[in-house]
Computed example of a mutant assay.
Amino acid sequence: MPGGRLTDEDRRDIASGLTDGLGYAEIARRLDRPTSTITREVSRNGGARDYRADRAHQATLRRARRRRTATPHEPPVAVGAPGRDPVAVLAFAEEFAALMVRMGLPRMAARVLASLVTTDSGALTAAELVGRLRVSPASVSKAVGYLEGLELVRRERDARRRERYFIDDGMWLRTWLTSARTNAMLADTAQRGVAVFDPATPAGARLDHMRRFFAQLSDDMSGAGTATGDVVTVLDALVRAVTPDTANRLATELGWPPDRVAAALFDAGQLVR
């Protein structure tokens, strides 16, 4: 029935459709299911190339067993507010992780990031991540290190000297501006190539086209001359205007420890420079 759980027969039909080269929407139409259901099913079970009905079925059974056996102290996902459907939370976390993988993030790093995003506090210890993801501490450590390198996650020690891993509200803006800077670097490199090759030659013309493309993309993303640029300017002014007294009031208002506010203000200052 539409909206119900996929059956073993449904999965065989999905595998057959993928083999025949059908798109997710067409497979969903034939099974009378939402396209998002098929997309999520295939993404979390190997993707279109590696999807196998039997393996997908076994993986679903294993996930169900993990949910049933998870302890109260180490739930498989962040359930959050009372009344929130843990199955829906798990499905969303897997969908989010699959999207991050398609965007180039390693799978374990994507799963760690999805766990933090779907946790109300936005913070977990290494032990909590190991319990949620059912992986080794070494896998979690490697994934966190990778995410730190991208400035998507930061770590702090709590009162019990345990390391906690955080995401913060500024990480998406920081990622966006980092991408803008990368595009600017590509434009600069292409410009040097244009100086080496004659722009009248095919190679020189190609590099010039690349330069113009990435220069425009960088300007668009960084907000040069746009409302986004104004936002960055205002943010810079606000960060410069913060005093220790206003920082303490901000910490009280947010319910954060002062060192977290200080770290966030430092990150904001780095963003706009």
Rank of each mutant, 00 (worst) to 15 (best):
A56P: 00
D198I: 03
T175K: 12
Q191E: 15
V242W: 01
Y146W: 15
S36V: 11
D10Y: 02
V242I: 12
E151V: 04
D20L: 14
L186I: 14
E151K: 12
E163V: 12
A97R: 01
A56W: 00
R273I: 06
D13I: 11
A93P: 01
A241F: 09
T37I: 02
D245F: 05
S36N: 08
T7H: 07
T125Q: 07
G122P: 05
R249Q: 15
I38M: 08
F96M: 07
A56D: 00
F214C: 04
A247I: 03
R192K: 13
G223E: 05
Y165D: 00
G122W: 07
G21I: 02
P82S: 06
F266N: 09
R102C: 10
S139V: 02
G170P: 00
T175R: 15
D169H: 05
G23W: 06
E128V: 03
F96L: 15
A59P: 01
L113S: 02
R181L: 13
A81S: 10
L238M: 14
G225F: 11
A241I: 01
T35C: 04
A126S: 15
L265C: 06
L186A: 13
A114G: 01
A251D: 04
L173N: 08
R164G: 04
L99E: 13
D13V: 13
W176L: 13
A215P: 01
M103D: 14
A53H: 09
A25M: 10
T7F: 10
P2L: 15
A215E: 14
T201C: 10
V153R: 00
R249G: 12
A78C: 09
A205P: 01
I14L: 03
A205V: 01
D168L: 02
S36C: 01
Q58H: 11
S16Y: 08
P258M: 14
P34D: 15
E253A: 13
I27K: 00
R249F: 10
T201F: 09
H57M: 05
L61S: 07
A64Y: 08
Q216W: 09
V79H: 08
S179V: 08
A180H: 07
F166A: 00
E163I: 09
R44S: 14
L113Q: 11
P86Q: 07
G255S: 02
R157T: 11
M100T: 10
V194G: 09
A237M: 12
W176C: 08
P257D: 05
A123H: 11
D230N: 12
L254S: 05
